[in-house]
Amino acid sequence: MACPAMAASPEIPTQLSVGGMFAQADWVVKTVMIGLVIASIITWTVFIAKSIELRRARQEAEGLLAGLNAARSLSALPTETAADELVAHARAEISQSAEALHDRDGLKERIISRLERHEALVSRRMTQGVTILATIGATAPFVGLFGTVWGIMNAFIGIAEKQTTNLSVVAPGIAEALLATALGLVAAIPAVVIYNHFARQIAAHRAIVSDSSATLLRLVSRDLSRGTLQAEGD
């Protein structure tokens, strides 16, 4: 004869789809899932936008470096290269030091200071939006784990309330918990991989900018040695 508890127990759910698990989840678990989905969307949005930005910046930086390497003096720079922000900083310092061009070391130090500030500005521009990937990669697994713990807690509460360990009671809460864990990993793993990819790309871009600064400083040094360096307007 069947046990009364087993006879009265509901049937085991057969449709534990992602949508179904989300629909029957507790509001806390739902909030966790929605937050992780939003974090994943942000990750891929940053990836697309930053990839386009870095590709364009890399092409411009390589073009500037090629133009600087091809020139023999500051006055012989191509028009496109001469209009670059890096060259503008050097020209601005030369213009402001028009009456002190004889102080070669002092002029070089001031130009180096401007170029270093420009490199720092470029670095800040390139890292904008990237740090959020590190935040998502570090926190998403723990957010998913919180949803997991909450879902398992609900499963045990269901067992206690219905006085049964039937799978139909335990399965939904466990499934919700596992889904929260999976979403946490789905959000975290791409964020970490993409962040590391961008870190390498930004480091490579900064190296090109640094090479351009060094090349520009050599042009200024040559003009100083030749005595041909002039402030704009002279």
Rank of each mutant, 00 (worst) to 15 (best):
P78L: 05
L121P: 02
A188Q: 06
V220D: 05
K108T: 10
W150K: 05
S97D: 11
T165Q: 10
G67I: 05
L77T: 01
V192G: 02
V193L: 06
P190L: 00
I136D: 02
G129V: 01
R56M: 07
I152E: 07
S9E: 07
G158H: 00
I202K: 06
F156T: 04
F142V: 02
A180K: 05
N154K: 13
R218F: 00
A66G: 06
L185N: 00
R56F: 04
A188D: 10
E109L: 15
C3P: 09
I189H: 04
W150D: 04
M33P: 06
F47P: 07
D105R: 14
T165N: 09
A188S: 15
L219A: 03
H102T: 15
I202E: 01
A70L: 10
R125M: 01
L77E: 01
V32H: 03
L115I: 02
A66W: 03
E161W: 04
C3W: 13
D26E: 02
A70R: 15
A90G: 12
Q15T: 12
A100D: 13
G173F: 04
A25V: 00
A171T: 08
A138Y: 04
A25D: 00
L178P: 11
T31Q: 03
P10G: 11
H118E: 14
D84N: 14
S225T: 05
A188C: 08
V46E: 02
I189Q: 01
A155Q: 08
A25T: 03
S221Y: 04
V18T: 08
M6F: 12
V32E: 02
P10N: 06
I42R: 04
L179T: 10
Q201K: 14
L86I: 11
T148N: 06
E62W: 02
S213G: 06
R72C: 07
I94A: 03
I202V: 13
T43L: 01
V169Q: 08
L107R: 11
M153N: 03
M153Q: 04
A231D: 01
I48M: 14
A7Y: 14
T135C: 02
I52Q: 08
G20I: 01
T14E: 15
W27I: 12
L86Q: 14
Q230E: 10
E85G: 07
G173L: 05
I136W: 01
I132Q: 02
